[in-house]
Design a protein around this nucleic acid. Structure first.
Length: 903
RNA sequence: GCCUUGGUGGUGGAAUGGUAGACACGAGGGACUUAAAAUCCCUUGGCCCGAAACGGCCGUGCGGGUUCGAGUCCCGCCCGAGGCACCA
């Protein structure tokens, strides 16, 4: 009988939906396992075959864990607020809620066809008021807390007020002054800061939303602008975000990315006396290289530094102002492009080196950043390449401090060597000199040890419409939170989605956007607001009393396995960790980290196909012959091509201009060229999973996506090879049939059949645990190939086979399972005796040593006697190879410990 | 520049320090067919000896090293991918 995947898949998808097979509840009698996908932004283009890669992997693991008896939480939802829907709304007037709803419906249909085991009763959408109520709630909590460095956690703002009262800093302040004071401490606060402003999008962007001076969404130029913005005090959590990375089962590269982003550096703050000729100040700088202080030949201020005003002398004022104007005009992109060139201006002032007493000039340059350290540095051109370039450009002295180093061509940045020209540090290695210098500075009251982080507070504002409104209004200009019972504060209707004529955000158009006559905040929250705690909401999605109930949180705790793209490494994955830690401090959640294990699935790239048109003709030449002609390479829709062979008729019908196309073939076929590119509409290489499901079925799609290569690796979508997977499923199907009749025998299996099965179970189990799904698929192919050769149709083999296969190809597994007479879904089949049969710990590994030196390891059954082990050793291939004709004098076997061979 | 990865046939990719190339695709040959599709079988890293059989040599980016044994471990290069980029 034919393997009719279409009918089978439709049938079982309906069955799962009707019976709510994958619905879960908290169940303390069973161990929990939480598998989460990064929820998608539902874009208008729908899913392409790259999107489900991670979803398939997580689904396989979820189904596998269910078979192992876990209570698996496997939810899905939509990150539904965002720029594209809003840009579309601006262009067409279509309300973003409507396009979003349409896109979600499409996504759902596409996902349903692939047969995922999501518990859809737990679906969340970030744009749903019942959901964003809790986003707003979390914001209010952050507004109502401050970070106490003494207890190293967030505390209610009231404890800070108490502290101020005790210190006498509270009474007598006006309401506005009190608000301003507290604002400097709140976790969610409003503050003036330099932000990434994207004029084209009309909004500010977070650091992770800007790449190379361009917006990630849209690729528009971004500039730096000082603005008052809502921010989250992520920097307060820098050390904890760094420390807690240790515990996580994330890849090293991802952890490293986060470490770099957090950017901890240990050094010292040192005070320099600076004078503009009339006044003298104490100026603090930060350095990690206190040891190089004897080589300081100038100081540099960031252009935005407050010191610039104080230290610019009248003679230099004109030059400085020119320079500041120049810097201000540059876009971020221009600054990056000109990184190599040093620019700057002399302030006119001088600083005194606190150790040598020498005077050095104070310069101003954009290579010093105002947002890091103190916005001022001591420059040591001999040992810092940036200072070096600057010194060379402006002819400033360069004093080498390490014996034998040559600084005539470039600086010597390495942290090794012996110090010289450095007073009391002379003769010390750099590693000794750094702490020695800081000790000196500290003991002479010139400064102190200091740790700095690169991690900045997150800008929590977007001047847009399609996002969560802030539950904040301005009473006499004072930011005032709405009471919690007023939540959710729903997004108001407006008639146009553009900024107002006066340049206010779109919410400025909303009528009656006030509380008691006071204006509500006009900006909305950024994209990451809604995605920072969604994993918690899935635990208890319909609770209207709390983000998550204590019971649900205590049971589900945190995500055991999180699968998603690496592009969220420094955005979502930092924010969510911060958000979770904050809620942890407040006692709302019981785990300090949200995502225990994280896997980054690779991207699936497009595989584009080309045809070659001979110039000025409508004749196309096959790839192998194209060099004989002058041709133009043209992208061709990949659906018209199978295994790089062009379907000529389909091509002619593709576009009117090709109707009359002529072809020069090779071996009677038209062979297309190909290239790996990003999957995109314009390159005609987008493959829709629906098409694959139509042609091969969801089970083939699922297995093929896994078979393509290691999960974490990026790879092109290449349909070459999908036939092999499909053939495997048909072969499997065929095992159960004798011509058109279902035919499974109850005979006892032969040893050969059992061996094939058990090999598969052992391999599949080990591979699934390692997320090596591509080799698992191979193991299935081998097993089914062997069973087909043996013409095996025994129930005792085929039933466990179906169970092991069911995470990968659930539809066919369910069908066969039911044909074999079962009435319950295979998803909850419990055959631990099969699945665990070959993983029992009844083997022991002996290190084998020759004359006392360990050479290799030998695995044998635990039950063997020493004599039997010895016999195995003597016959062992490895032993023979090592001895290569030599003789064994004695074999010593210490049961369970070691085997020593004396030669 | 710094950090993190990776480099294996025609292709995607397998190999707890132990027979490199599993599995699949593609290619070639064959069987069954009037034919096609489908299915099945054989060959398939390179080179060499040979009638055949049995064989031999070289092969995991390059150069060294550790080891009885290295794709795997160590050192130094080369190349690709991703991330960060004036973070003092």
């Amino acid at each position: 009988m034919e393997y009719n995947f279409k009918e089978i898949e439709k049938k079982w998808q309906a069955y799962w939906a009707d019976r709510q097979t994958f619905r879960v509840e908290t169940d303390p009698s069973k161990p929990k396992y939480y598998v989460l996908d990064m929820f998608p932004y539902p874009s208008g283009a729908g899913l392409h075959v790259g999107h489900p890669l991670g979803y398939i992997a997580s689904d396989i693991y979820s189904r596998y864990k269910r078979l192992k008896g876990f209570n698996v939480l496997h939810p899905m939802g939509y990150d539904a607020f965002g720029l594209p829907a809003e840009q579309y709304a601006i262009q067409t007037g279509q309300h973003p809620a409507i396009t979003t709803e349409q896109n979600i419906r499409r996504y759902r249909q596409q996902m349903d066809r692939i047969g995922f085991s999501y518990d859809w009763s737990r679906e969340v959408r970030t744009c749903d008021p019942a959901y964003y109520k809790w986003t707003q709630w979390a914001f209010l909590e952050m507004f109502g807390h401050w970070y106490n460095p003494e207890t190293d956690k967030a505390e209610p703002i009231e404890t800070l007020i108490e502290k101020f009262k005790a210190e006498g800093r509270w009474e007598g302040l006006s309401e506005k002054e009190q608000s301003d004071l507290l604002m400097q401490y709140r976790i969610a606060y409003q503050g003036e800061t330099s932000v990434n402003w994207c004029p084209k999008l009309g909004t500010v962007l977070a650091n992770d939303e800007v790449k190379e001076g361009l917006s990630v969404r849209g690729g528009f130029p971004v500039e730096q602008k000082k603005m008052k913005q809502w921010q989250l005090r992520v920097s307060a959590y820098a050390q904890r975000l760094l420390d807690d990375l240790e515990e996580l089962e994330w890849t090293d590269s991802l952890k490293e990315m986060q470490r770099n982003w957090i950017g901890r550096s240990q050094g010292a703050e040192i005070v320099f006396k600076v004078s503009n000729g009339s006044e003298t100040y104490d100026m603090t700088i930060f350095t990690t290289r206190a040891d190089t202080i004897f080589g300081v030949t100038f100081m540099v201020l960031a252009p935005e530094s407050e010191w610039v005003e104080k230290l610019t002398t009248p003679e230099q004022r004109a030059a400085v102002e020119d320079y500041l104007a120049l810097v201000k005009k540059k876009t971020e992109r221009e600054r990056i492009a000109e990184t190599r060139k040093a620019t700057g201006v002399f302030s006119g002032s001088y600083a005194v080196n606190p150790l040598t007493g020498k005077e050095v000039p104070v310069w101003i340059s954009e290579y010093v950043l105002s947002g890091y350290g103190t916005g001022a540095i001591m420059a040591v051109p001999a040992h810092d390449s940036r200072d070096y370039t600057f010194a060379k450009t402006f002819n400033l002295p360069i004093v080498p401090l390490i014996e034998g180093c040559d600084v005539s061509q470039e600086s010597f940045d390495a942290k090794d060597g012996i110090m010289c020209n450095s007073g009391f540090l002379n003769g010390k290695t750099v590693k000794e000199a750094i702490p020695a210098a800081i000790d000196y500075v500290e003991s002479h009251g010139l400064g102190h040890r200091k740790i700095n982080f690169r991690l900045r507070d997150a800008i929590f504002s977007r001047q847009r419409y399609w996002g969560e409104p802030f539950p904040i209004y301005f009473k006499e200009g004072i930011p005032t939170p709405l009471p919690v019972d007023a939540l959710p504060l729903e997004l108001p209707e407006i008639d146009e989605f553009k900024p107002t004529e006066t340049g206010e955000p779109p919410l400025g158009r909303a009528k009656g956007w006030t509380v008691d006559g006071w204006p509500l905040e006009l900006i909305t929250m950024p994209g990451f607001a809604g995605s920072s705690a969604y994993y918690l909401r899935y635990m208890d999605p319909h609770n209207d009393q709390a983000l998550v109930s204590r019971e649900a949180d205590a049971y589900w705790r945190n995500v055991d396995l999180y699968i998603g793209g690496t592009e969220h490494a420094t955005g979502h994955l930092i924010y969510a960790r911060f958000w979770n830690k904050f809620l942890y401090d407040c006692g709302y959640v019981c785990e300090m980290e949200p995502f225990k294990k994280l896997i980054n699935q690779g991207m699936i790239q497009g595989r584009s196909n080309f045809v070659y048109r001979i110039k000025n003709t409508n004749t196309f030449v096959s790839c192998g012959l194209k060099d004989q002609y002058d041709t133009t390479e043209i992208h061709v829709l990949v659906n018209l091509v199978h295994n790089d062979r062009l379907d000529i008729e389909a091509f002619r019908n593709w576009m009117p201009e090709y109707k009359t196309a002529e072809f020069i073939l090779e071996d009677g076929e038209y062979i297309c060229g190909w290239a790996v590119e990003k999957m995109s509409k314009s390159m005609f290489n987008v493959v829709n999973p629906d098409e694959v499901c139509d042609r091969y079925g969801a089970d083939t799609l699922r297995m093929y996506e896994m078979f393509l290569g290691p999960l974490e690796q990026s790879k092109p979508w290449d349909t070459k090879g999908i036939d092999g997977v499909h053939r495997f499923l048909r072969k499997l199907w065929g095992l159960h049939f004798d011509r058109d009749t279902f035919c499974v025998s109850d005979e006892a299996p032969t040893p050969a059949e059992l061996k094939a099965l058990h090999k598969l179970i052992g391999k599949a189990q080990a591979d699934i645990e390692n997320f090596s799904f591509n080799t698992t698929v191979s193991a299935f192919m081998i097993a089914v190939g062997t069973l087909a050769d043996l013409k095996c149709n025994k129930r005792a083999i085929l039933e466990p086979l179906a169970i092991v296969l069911s995470p990968f190809a659930p539809h066919i597994a369910e069908e066969l399972w039911s044909l074999m007479g079962h009435t319950e879904s295979i998803a909850y089949a419990r055959f631990p005796e099969y699945i665990e049969a070959y993983t029992r710990e009844d083997n022991v590994e002996y290190p084998v040593s020759f004359n006392g030196k360990t050479r290799f390891k030998l695995t044998v059954s635990k039950s063997l006697s020493p004599a039997e082990v010895e016999a195995i050793v003597r016959a062992d291939e490895n032993t023979a190879r090592y001895l290569a004709g030599g003789a064994i004098r004695k074999v010593i076997v210490v049961p369970g410990r070691i085997i020593n061979i004396v030669c």
